[in-house]
Design a protein around this nucleic acid. Sequence first.
DNA 1: TCAAAAGATGTATTTATAATACCCCTATTA
DNA 2: TAATAGGGGTATTATAAATACATCTTTTGA
Lengths: 150, 150
Amino acid sequence: MKLTKHTDYAFRVLIYLAGYEKDKLATIKEVTAVFDISRDHVMKIVQKLAKAGFVDAIRGKFGGMKLGSNAADINLRDVVTLMEVTLAPVNCEEPPCRIAQGCVLQTLLFEAQELFLSHLGQYTLSDLIKPESETLYIIKALGESFAAGE
Amino acid sequence: MKLTKHTDYAFRVLIYLAGYEKDKLATIKEVTAVFDISRDHVMKIVQKLAKAGFVDAIRGKFGGMKLGSNAADINLRDVVTLMEVTLAPVNCEEPPCRIAQGCVLQTLLFEAQELFLSHLGQYTLSDLIKPESETLYIIKALGESFAAGE
DNA sequence: TCAAAAGATGTATTTATAATACCCCTATTA
DNA sequence: TAATAGGGGTATTATAAATACATCTTTTGA
Ligand code: SF4
Ligand code: SF4
């Protein structure tokens, strides 16, 4: 009953990018350094985010990445849906459940899951990174100390 | 993002017991046969349920088990809470997240989780096994065919 | 034109944890 | 006292997540 690290790593990356000035590019190297996650790992996550359009990845020298759309248009539910492999709270088929037919529990679990997701669906990336928020402040500091450390 | 099989197996056992006449005992063997789960596995789950008081396990010849209280008093949220090892939707400490301080996402995820759990908290075992329900009918049939097959 | 910087991608390995199995114990009662 | 039924520790296996490795292509400026 928890999200995978991939999902949360995706959020970390997105939050970081959301803290950037629009159109300024961050590199994989930077995200890797700032969050202390391996390059390969970050790559996988960024690629998934890029394919879904949440980030724009620009190849080549002086390439990098930025948000694929406005932070206000990146819905948190969509990010979870993209990153999580399994969203069903229970698998009634394997092994097959003898009481699956008409099982009320099944209905309740899916309702509960929907409440979880729809709560996230009420927010976007921009809600995580409001001006004057602590997170925004921290991100800017992390970015600066990376730039300085180069 | 899903419950463990243990949790659902616990529900299967509880639902089965709830379908029994009050004070009639079911055996591990019966549950094992009906749901096609190994004895050892069922044992582990029943023991956990017994320790929490959700079922009464009676040892010795002609022993068995029954619900530890009225079906209407067994809250679904409590069952999930008991069986799930990890309920936190995200672990911000391992590996430590650099933006954990003041992270809004963290708050939102825990709120979402609470919505999930509190939805289940509105129901009890008796809601899963209403008179004339399909589930109750199926359970009785399973019990009878087990009794006949002995 | 080619070297450096940056992302792309497929595959393999490792690790964590859930799931299952094994073994022997204790309690109860005809 | 034998048969039946649950108790509980430990070991193994399976599955999926997490991570690592290797090798690519793209872009650009010296
Ligand atoms: S008890 Fe209900 S929810 Fe659980 S596996 Fe069976 S059908 Fe699905
Ligand atoms: S981004 Fe927020 S929710 Fe995710 S690990 Fe960091 S603090 Fe926790």
